[in-house]
Amino acid sequence: MEVIDGQWYMGGLDWDDEGCIHSSDELLSVIDRVGFIPLFENVIPGFSVENMTCLSYWWSGDADVDPWEWRGVLARTGKVAYGKFFGNKTGFISKKWFPYFVNYRRSGYDFDALYDDGKAGYREKLLMDLFIPSGVDIWDVKVSALPSLGLSSELYTHEMKEKAGFGKGGEKNFEGVLTKLQMQTYLTVKDFKPRQNKKGEEYGWE
């Protein structure tokens, strides 16, 4: 994706191009083969979902052919990780290659150790505390026991923002802190759902 004179321009292929990906299943195969793929065009020629798909179907809303919809389709499979992993921008990483990113980005630190060593801020901790019980190492967490502790194994971003006290009159820079935790591989996207306003009308995604 490129911005020229304030307008966004996307690259991509023709639907009939030999290298064009036509479905989420095809994209999953490519992610499995390559290991990782950013969503949008970047400094590496060809290395993005944008570069491998047909522009005409982006944001069409048809999950069979719309790469924007495939983010949720694939995140829900649990076969790949989706999140802000590439220069604060989104992309996919296969299950096989995720541990390599984890070790590179975390330098071998679980989050509690990172915080204890003064290498993570309290705002990051506010968000991670929504998922990991106080005083429990993450390898020792029983996911099924989280609800009884008032915690969840997964949360939508608006829930995280509210529960951790970000927003009006509260902590600042929710998006920045959340992006940092994804770049460090401590959090990943599990699902998407459309946001609703007070009238129950859908707008945007989270």
Binding site: G78, F131, I138, V143, E154, L155, L178, Y186, T188
Partner: peptide, 10 residues
């Protein structure tokens, strides 16, 4: 959002 450990195990 979720910690990846909850998807694939520690």
């Amino acid at each position: 959002m979720t910690p990846p450990e909850y998807i694939w195990g520690y």
